[in-house]
Amino acid sequence: MLTYLLRRLILVLPVAFGVSVICFLLVQIAPGDPLTAIMPVDATAEEQSAMRAAYGLDKPLPVQYAIWIGNLVQGDMGKSIATGRPVAAEVFGAVQNSLLLAVSAAVIAFPIGIFLGFLAGYFRDIWIDRAVTAVSIAGVSVPNYWLGIVLVIIFSVNLGWLPSMGAGPGGSSEWQWNWLHMRHLILPAVTLAVVPIGIVARTVRALAGDILTQDFVQALYAKGMSRADVLRHVARNAAATALSVMGLQLGYLLGGSILIETVFNWPGSGFLLSNAIFQRDLPLLQGTILVLALFFVAMNLIVDVAQAAIDPRIQRT
């Protein structure tokens, strides 16, 4: 198991390298000059090239990459062109908020999804199954930014129960564990949870339904095992695949919440990203994408290792 872990960790390095190259290049080949965003319209050519040199944008691409990656490994992701603040501080603050939102959504979505999926898989082809399938298809199909706006209209505008914007009172982005802040989390987390509820429920339904029809489950009954114990075995067999789906979902929740964060003005990485795009803030954009991508890589690694730990059929060498 230890050698498997080490091997997987070493394999992460080339992936991380590839991710960093793509992050760097994606932003470089995008049209538009970041300097136009911060320079006055009437800036002279000398002023422009001086600014370019100050940000290192006059050097050839490989050199720029080498400098960028060199600073990166020292924890320096450059300064935001728009705000002048260090990118690392901005990104990690935002990623923390996004992580909070993503994990909250996962905490809501995964148990509900697993429960519904198991229910549907067990009571296959009767009304319970059809009801769960309808709910999960609706969950996957409803555009969640639209749902977010609808929830805001109901719970913030009409009922006035929950705040509609920000991560804390007065638009503060400093998270604290108290009710004043947690109220702000409820609507975006619930909105974000709808899609993974559907996906997890459908996955678990298919898994449970499939496993329940297998011979070894009949064999467990024939062995004299009680229904509850048999279901425990079914759950254990479904766990590995369900876990990998949930791990990837958590990755999507983290990186894919741009729309939700924009709808709710949640000061997370998606919100940061959309601002960085509109302001052509190159260093911030690169830094945010990189951190999110590396998070996805790490998530995959964790899922793989967890799967190998659960399922003996997966080669560990």
């Binding site: 297998q214 011979d215 070894f216 009949q218 064999a219 075995h233 067999n237 659960i310």
Partner: peptide, 9 residues
């Protein structure tokens, strides 16, 4: 079926 009737894990 000895392939299906044993608990794979």
């Amino acid at each position: 079926d000895p392939y299906g009737s044993l608990h794979p894990r």
